[in-house]
């Protein structure tokens, strides 16, 4: 398929878009920010018969709190997230993760729905959505289903999304006052890099360094994002002293199953899962104490 042979349609509303997805028998792909899609098209990997350009569906671009739940439209850009006072207050870990995505231009164009849909195991916002317990609303023309993010991915680049479906809403639980989160990323350089390992942490603190529990999710160390449940279960075993932090961090390498690629070896990635968790917990506790 040549690029010049690919069609593009630009629906003017969500219902028009879903109607198109329901009736078309052409090979199609959704085009949101295009920061992944255009690169893959150029490389020859993504050459659908028709691009469904949803970039202008304003109705899918929102951040709001309703009935104890934060709703994020899938076309919300990373920059929107970074600048949202609501998310800064009640979803700090997602704000931090969005700030680490690519370059400024990518943050301006790239969308959270696109980041989820691309389903890269190294996607920066996904671990944050894991620890915030995100639920995805998936719609077709005549169905609507809710899928917890941990059930959404089936492998690298693969999801449970059917050809006539799209993500229409992302629901997260707002953080309560004692809940704090952090996102840590190790890339080959500080900015504009693909994660070698990343980790999102969310803790529910009680008093001092005592922690009621929390969630830890690693990226780029497995076929999908990995929850570190063994590490999580130790969070509430005592005050999070530097010793306990180091011990919890050491367990992380047992929870991940990285591979070797051009960016890093599997051994280093394993070691880095522990290192980032240690660094993240240390920084998070420091932040908690200095709040």
């Amino acid at each position: 398929m040549l690029v010049s042979e690919i069609d593009m349609i630009t629906p003017s509303s969500l219902s028009e878009c879903l109607a198109f997805l329901a009736q078309t028998n052409k090979k199609h792909k959704l085009l949101a920010g295009g920061t992944d899609a255009t690169v893959r098209m150029k490389e020859g990997n993504w050459r659908p018969e028709v691009w469904v350009n949803i970039k202008n569906l304003k109705e899918l671009r929102y951040i709001e709190e309703k009935e104890g739940c934060i709703h994020i439209g899938p076309l919300t850009t990373h920059t929107d997230i970074v600048r949202s006072p609501l998310l800064q207050k009640k979803a700090d870990v997602l704000v931090e993760a969005s700030r680490e995505v690519g370059a400024t231009q990518m943050q301006n164009m790239g969308t959270i729905g696109g980041n989820i849909g691309t389903a890269s195991p190294a996607g920066d916002t996904i671990p944050a959505l894991y620890v915030l317990g995100a639920i995805l609303e998936i719609s077709s023309l005549d169905t609507k289903r809710l899928v917890p993010i941990e059930q959404f991915f089936t492998g690298p680049g693969r999801t449970v999304l059917r050809v006539n479906e799209m993500i229409t809403n992302i629901l997260i639980q707002p953080q309560v006052p004692n809940e704090i989160g952090i996102f840590q990323k190790l890339g080959p350089r500080k900015a504009q890099s693909i994660s070698i390992v990343n980790v999102a942490i969310s803790l529910r603190m009680i008093e001092g360094r005592h922690c009621q529990g929390g969630k830890i999710a690693f990226g780029a160390v497995g076929p999908t994002i990995i929850r570190a449940k063994k590490c999580e279960s130790l969070l509430s075993q005592g005050p999070l002293t530097e010793d306990l932090i180091q011990n919890i961090a050491k367990i992380a390498w047992k929870e991940v199953m990285p591979i070797t690629d051009v960016r890093a070896t599997a051994t280093y990635r394993r070691d880095m899962a522990s290192a980032l968790l240690e660094r993240g917990l240390y920084r998070l506790i420091r932040r908690w104490e200095n709040r």
């Binding site: 080959p188 350089r189 500080k190 900015a191 504009q192 890099s193 051009v262």
Partner: peptide
């Protein structure tokens, strides 16, 4: 994957 320094480095 060819990493050159940016202004942050």
């Amino acid at each position: 994957d060819y990493i050159i320094p940016t202004i942050r480095e």
